[in-house]
């Protein structure tokens, strides 16, 4: 059998979503962002809502998310994406408005915007990629960096006396009356990817059904920042990140 025999359309069992263009990604090999982008693209395509979707990119590694998914985007100042999303949703209530944010963006500089958006309850979706480190700026400590975890700005490991405790912000957000769905997922195995996709779909449906704020945290790896291979990163995440940030739904008022 030649390669031409194999790549016939009828043999196609998997493809990237059409929304995802062919621009080379700037993400490091092994990074979780690419998978999360793909899931967003798949869900938007399956829901057939591209014409009604406005995404907001953060400052951080995902700052260039707008280069890879062919939807309309606005690029936020660091941490301000939820404030922008609230305004857009108020001005255009029938649109699917979502933010895509990392841990530094959402849980450090943007804490006020995050909490007030989640408390106000406008139907926006927050996709929160938590890898416990600032990737874009070269691996500094994030609010979600684990105790003892080494980064460029806590080179001897996070010391809570010096740096405070890791911020489990999603636990906080679930307590706010404006959130309808708060879940924690990962994308490090095929099974996890399927679950994460279901969560994103549910969050986007809540968005269009005006149910309130949906928060999908994706516990992720940053193998470059963690200075591990992608495989080692996944294992380290399972052993260290998951106990601190356990996977599963934290809240769902839509059932």
């Amino acid at each position: 059998m030649t390669i031409e025999d194999i790549i016939k359309p009828e043999n196609l069992v998997y493809k990237k979503p059409d929304l995802m263009n062919d621009r080379p990604m700037h993400y490091c090999p092994g990074c979780s962002h690419g998978v999360v982008h793909k899931l967003i693209g798949e869900v938007l395509e399956e829901m057939d809502v591209v014409e009604d979707t406005i995404g907001i990119t953060p400052v951080g590694c995902a700052v260039f998310a707008y280069n890879y998914l062919d939807i309309d985007w606005e690029e936020a100042a660091h941490g301000r994406a939820p404030a922008m999303a609230v305004a857009i949703k108020r001005l255009r209530p029938n649109k699917l408005v979502f933010t895509y944010q990392g841990d530094g963006d959402l849980a450090a500089i943007g804490t006020a915007e995050t909490i007030h958006a989640c408390n106000r309850g406008d139907s926006i979706t927050i996709i929160f990629v938590n890898n416990g480190i600032y990737g874009m700026t070269g691996g500094q400590m994030a609010p979600t960096t684990l105790e003892g975890m080494k980064t460029a700005t806590c080179p001897y490991g996070r010391n809570v006396k010096l740096n405070g405790y890791p911020l489990k912000i999603t636990n906080l957000l679930k307590e706010l009356d404006g959130t309808c769905y708060v879940t924690r997922q990962s994308v490090h195995t095929a099974a996890a990817v399927r679950k994460a996709k279901k969560a994103i779909r549910k969050a986007f449906e809540n968005n269009l059904n005006q149910k309130g704020v949906s928060v999908v945290e994706i516990v992720s790896t940053c193998n470059s920042g963690w200075k591990m291979t992608p495989d080692q990163s996944n294992k380290w995440m399972e052993e260290n990140m998951f106990p601190a940030y356990p996977l599963g739904d934290l809240k769902d008022t839509t059932i």
């Binding site: 406005i54 907001i56 606005e74 936020a76 100042a77 301000r80 404030a83 922008m84 999303a85 609230v86 305004a87 857009i88 108020r90 001005l91 255009r92 006020a112 915007e113 007030h116």
Partner: peptide, 14 residues
């Protein structure tokens, strides 16, 4: 005020 101006930024972008 920070949130307010970023709400303006978000809305103006649409």
């Amino acid at each position: 005020e920070v949130a307010a101006i970023n709400m303006v930024y978000g809305g103006a972008g649409t």
